[in-house]
């Protein structure tokens, strides 16, 4: 085996389906992820692609141990973290971060940006790491005194990124973090992430439904459909020789710039 930072084997996630709960007895189980196995190399970027509702967010949250797996094993840096309690997980938390899909809900509305970034560091807002994190994501340092509702959606998303990278984690799950950004901010954030991977030795799981973004950033891609992995390939191979019908559909849906097209 090569040098995998995170190995996932036979992962299954089920939730209780409260909408179809009978009057008596337990609610039926709804399977969201099934038989997921893959590994993430150290210092690589794994793309996780799939349509809406395919289970990408659930997978990302399981990787950071927010969602309890029903079955399977999660092995992070040689350590089995599947069953770790909250207390046992705490020393590892700093090394595994998640950037949330919904930037409004992910930032505490009653704390300033400075405190939001400083709290996980267990530092004061005046800590130089807070200013550095804001610089890193291209936000003015003056934003440290603002509240989340005073920021635009894209700016909030960057605060989420700043909070995660300020901790200097080994592994980050980024859940659709560029979907809410305009094209130039997207490019800026992607460059930032690519640099962090290079400079800090970061390992990244990058969730997206946008294959053109995946192509720029990722080394390897897994494609999810209805909670199952239907494709797991190096990124170059995915674009040249997709093996699954669903992947071909996804690839065809990328708008290719076509200069010959007449308007």
């Amino acid at each position: 085996m090569t040098d995998a930072l995170y190995r996932i084997e036979g992962l299954r996630v089920e939730v209780a389906d409260q909408t179809r709960k009978p009057l008596f007895g337990a609610a039926p189980r709804l399977r969201i992820l099934d038989d997921i196995s893959f590994s993430i190399e150290r210092r690589s970027v794994l793309g996780i692609v799939g349509g809406s509702g395919s289970g990408k967010t659930t997978l990302g949250r399981t990787l950071v141990r927010l969602v309890e797996p029903t079955a399977g094993t999660l092995i992070f840096d040689g350590q089995d973290v599947t069953q770790l309690s909250d207390d046992a997980m705490r020393p590892l938390r700093q090394r595994i971060q998640l950037i949330f899909q919904d930037p409004m809900s992910a930032l505490n509305p009653r704390l300033t940006i400075g405190r939001i970034i400083a709290a996980p560091l267990r530092a004061k807002t005046s800590d130089p790491r807070v200013a550095a994190a804001l610089d890193n994501v291209g936000l003015p340092r003056g934003f440290a005194g603002r509240y989340p509702h005073e920021l635009s959606g894209g700016q909030r998303q960057r605060v989420g990124i700043a909070r995660a990278i300020a901790l200097r984690p080994d592994f980050i799950v980024a859940d659709e973090i560029v979907s809410g950004l305009d094209v130039s901010s997207q490019a800026q954030v992607l460059t930032l992430l690519a640099n962090l991977v290079k400079d800090l030795g970061l390992t990244l799981a990058f969730i997206s439904h946008d294959l053109s973004v995946i192509r720029r950033l990722c080394d390897r891609v897994i494609v999810l459909q209805k909670g199952k992995i239907v494709e797991d390939q190096p990124v170059a191979d995915l674009f040249t020789s997709p093996s699954h019908e669903y992947t071909r559909q996804l690839l065809n849906s990328i708008p290719e710039p076509d200069p010959s097209q007449r308007w």
Partner: peptide, 25 residues
């Protein structure tokens, strides 16, 4: 809300999350 999940990922204890994240809201 995700900010509560975020506090968990940051490794806050439940007591601290309750008092410093939820209580202000």
């Amino acid at each position: 809300m995700d900010y509560v999940h975020s506090a968990r990922i940051a490794g806050f204890t439940r007591m601290k999350t309750m008092l410093s994240e939820i209580l202000p809201n």
